[in-house]
C-alpha cells in the first residue's frame, strides 16, 4: 500500500521533470539541426545551383530538399525535346502513411466527379494478430511502356505520348470502355455523368467549374466530353507544362511520392529506381510500368 503511494509520488515529480526536459531538448535539437545543416550547406562545393526559393525550411527538413531537386529536374527535363524525356514515378511504401492526401489532391486538381478516381490508395493488412502490419499502395496509372489499353482502343483516342504519358483525347473517345477492361491495374474509370449534388435543389458551383486536364479548359456539361468518356491519371500533364510537379507529389505529406525524368540518369527517380527495394506491379504481364514502388 505504502509502496504504491510512494511510487505515485515519484511519478508526479518525474512527469513535471520530463515536460521541462522535453522543452529544453526540443529547443536544443532544433538549434542543433539548424547548426548542423547550415554547416553542411556551407561545406558543400559552391558549384551547387543557386536556389532562389526561401532556404530556411529546406535546410531544416531534408525531404523538402528532394522536392526542390525534383522541381529543378522538372525544369531541366522540360527544356529538352518531348521525345527525350521519360516521366516516371516512384512511390516509397515505407514512407506512405495511408493519409490519402494524394487521392484528395488529385480529385481537387482535376475536379473529378463521383465514380472517377485516378489515384486511390489500397490498404493492405498482413499477418495474424499479434504479428500484424499494414502497408499502403497508392495506385496511379502505371503509364506502361507496353500499355494494353492503348493497344485495344478502336479509334486511337488513348495513346502513348513520346514522353511516356498515356493520355486520352476526350473528343475522339467513343466511350466503348474496352480500355477499362483491358487495364490490368484498374487504373481507368468512366465518367458516368454523375454529380455529387445530384438530387439536391441545385448543382453546386464547384461541380460545374472547368478542369484543366491536358491543358484544355473543360466544364462538365450534360453528355459533353469528358462525360461518357474514359478518364485516367495523366501525371498532371497540364501542371508539368506549367513547370509544376503532379498534384499527388506536392500533397504527399510523407514525401513518399517522387516524380521525374527517367531518361536523365542523374535524376532523383533514376537514383531511386536503382534501389534494390524497387518493385513494379504485375511485372509478369510484360506491361513495363513506369510507376515504381519501393517496398
Amino acid at each position: 500500500m505504502s509502496e504504491i503511494t510512494k511510487e505515485e509520488g515519484t511519478q508526479k515529480v518525474s512527469r513535471r521533470q520530463i515536460i521541462s526536459d522535453l522543452a529544453k531538448a526540443t529547443f536544443g535539437l532544433a538549434a542543433g539541426v539548424a547548426v548542423v545543416s547550415a554547416t553542411k550547406v556551407q561545406a558543400e562545393p559552391s558549384g551547387a545551383p543557386q536556389e532562389q526559393l526561401p532556404q530556411s525550411l529546406s535546410k531544416q527538413i531534408p525531404q523538402d530538399q528532394m522536392v526542390l531537386r525534383m522541381q529543378r529536374e522538372l525544369y531541366t527535363a522540360m527544356q529538352k525535346p518531348v521525345d527525350q524525356r521519360q516521366w516516371a514515378m516512384v512511390i516509397d511504401q515505407r514512407k506512405c502513411v495511408g493519409c490519402s492526401s494524394c487521392t484528395v489532391g488529385c480529385k481537387a486538381e482535376n475536379k473529378l466527379p463521383p465514380g472517377v478516381i485516378y489515384r486511390p490508395v489500397i490498404e493492405e493488412e498482413y499477418g495474424t494478430f499479434p504479428n500484424v502490419a499494414r502497408r499502403f499502395l497508392p495506385r496511379p496509372c502505371m503509364h506502361c511502356t507496353n500499355s494494353p489499353c492503348t493497344k485495344v482502343c478502336p479509334v486511337g483516342a488513348t495513346y502513348k505520348r513520346e514522353d511516356g504519358i498515356v493520355s486520352i483525347d476526350y473528343d475522339k473517345c467513343i466511350g466503348c470502355r474496352y480500355c477499362i477492361s483491358a487495364c490490368p491495374y484498374g487504373a481507368r474509370t468512366f465518367d458516368w455523368g454523375d454529380y455529387y449534388t445530384e438530387g439536391t435543389p441545385e448543382l453546386q458551383k464547384y461541380e460545374l467549374e472547368p478542369a484543366f486536364e491536358y491543358g484544355e479548359k473543360r466544364a462538365r456539361t450534360k453528355n459533353e466530353s469528358p462525360i461518357n468518356n474514359t478518364r485516367k491519371c495523366h501525371f498532371c500533364l497540364h501542371r508539368l507544362n506549367a513547370g509544376m510537379l503532379p498534384m499527388c507529389v506536392t500533397t504527399c505529406i510523407g514525401r513518399a511520392t517522387y516524380f521525374g525524368d527517367k531518361s536523365n540518369p542523374e535524376s532523383l527517380v533514376s537514383e531511386l529506381i536503382g534501389s534494390s527495394r524497387v518493385l513494379r506491379l504485375k511485372e509478369e504481364l510484360g506491361t513495363e510500368p513506369n510507376v515504381y514502388y519501393l517496398l
Binding site: K151, V155, I174, C176, N228, N229
Partner: peptide, 25 residues
C-alpha cells in the same frame, strides 16, 4: 453501349490497327 454513340463514325475515320474491335467493325 457506346458512351458517345454519335461518334460511331470515328471508328471508320480514326484507325488503330492494333485494336481487335477496330478490325471487327
Amino acid at each position: 453501349d457506346l458512351g458517345h454513340p454519335e461518334r460511331f463514325w470515328h471508328t471508320l475515320v480514326y484507325r488503330n490497327m492494333s485494336s481487335v474491335l477496330e478490325w471487327e467493325i
